[in-house]
């Protein structure tokens, strides 16, 4: 019976460390497993992941299934999906969770169809219905305009979680668990896809998703030259980075990888400044985790004000330089 096999989460690692989504998955996975009174397992597929198994145990896993092979150094669909399917068949869990990340959003729906089961995508909360012992998965949809609770009718019940929607587990190094090495059974020579090269974005300073302060511009910025002023503002802050709405990136005002939103980067900085951004729900889904949102917009009816703590109604071309100058003064003083 799969029920006894509890919850399996697909962790993610890069450059020899677990990514924050892994701690988030283990935290919510632990809660579900405890509600069911069943174990929590983690799958770690990658290169050098054997060394991270203890860390996953400290974050809440009872059992870690390790697939450690150089062929998994980069996420490649045609290798990772069959390896993930093989782990799922070995573990035979009741619930499977993955992250809604660059690789997880590719892996998870494929895995669901391979296992002939249903999946709730991009969830912000998961719980067990104590009367049925089934998972209730809450997710925003329609660009964040509405919420729905999904039940998966088939087993294993699957879900992906939005990054930064759930707190990461706090490590407890006294926890003990079991580590199982899994024979992944994947023959790389049979792959129908070949990885050629990666084109990382050369960016100076902090990564957008890690930034403490994000200064974002939208359609109202008017063009690429306007973004120079936003760069200057972001540079004043320690850990500042520049983002944009989809309207700004699709119009070429700023680089596509700077898009903050449901289909771009999800940020959760201390301060998020939305400048000339109307506040479409798909954008808000990408910055809703910010501690404080500040909006600057000429349109006092703009939706962004409804999600902001502070706002200025006015032309950013006049507001931002004075704001930047004053911030500089305050930070120096």
């Amino acid at each position: 019976m799969a029920y006894e096999n509890g919850v399996l989460v697909y962790g993610e690692a890069k450059d020899g460390r677990l990514l924050s989504i892994t701690g988030e998955l283990l935290n919510v996975g632990r809660q579900l497993a405890d509600s069911l009174g069943q174990p929590l397992s983690a799958a770690l597929i990658g290169e050098g992941t054997a060394e991270l198994a203890q860390e996953a145990i400290a974050l809440g896993a009872d059992k870690v299934f390790v697939v450690d092979d150089a062929i998994f150094a980069e996420y490649l669909h045609d290798l990772h999906v069959p390896a993930a399917v093989n782990v799922a068949k070995e573990v035979d869990p009741y619930i499977i969770l993955a992250g809604q990340t660059a690789s997880g959003r590719d892996l998870a729906p494929h895995l669901a169809f391979h296992l002939d089961t249903g999946i709730a995508i991009d969830c912000t909360a998961l719980e067990i219905d104590s009367s049925t012992n089934r998972m209730r998965a809450t997710r925003p949809f329609s660009g964040g305009n509405f919420r729905q609770v999904i039940g998966v009718k088939t087993q294993p019940q699957m879900a992906t979680i939005r990054s930064k929607a759930i707190d990461g587990a706090a490590p407890d190094t006294s926890r003990t668990g079991e580590v199982v090495n899994v024979n992944h059974g994947v023959d790389a020579s049979q792959s129908r896809m070949k990885f050629i090269e990666s084109k990382p974005i050369e960016s100076e300073g902090v990564r957008l998703e890690d930034a403490d302060v994000v200064v974002s511009g939208g359609r109202g910025i008017g063009g690429p030259e306007g973004f120079e002023g936003l760069e200057d503002l972001a540079a004043i802050f320690d850990g500042g980075a520049v983002g944009g709405s989809r309207a700004a990136t699709d119009s070429g005002f700023t680089a596509p990888e700077r898009m903050v939103g449901i289909t771009g980067v999800i940020v959760a900085p201390n301060l998020y400044m939305a400048i000339g951004i109307s506040g479409a729900s798909q954008h808000l889904a990408g910055c809703g985790g910010a501690k404080t949102i500040v909006a600057i917009n000429t349109d006092e009816e703009a939706q962004i004000f409804g999600s902001s703590s502070f706002g200025v109604v006015g032309d950013y071309k006049q507001v931002v330089p004075a704001f930047a100058e004053e911030v500089k003064k305050l930070l120096q003083g």
Binding site: K14, E74, Y75, T101, R192, K194, F195, S198, K199, E257
Partner: peptide, 11 residues
């Protein structure tokens, strides 16, 4: 991809 783009060939 995470942090940029990547090139793949697919059959």
């Amino acid at each position: 991809s995470e942090g940029g783009t990547e090139i793949v060939e697919v059959n």
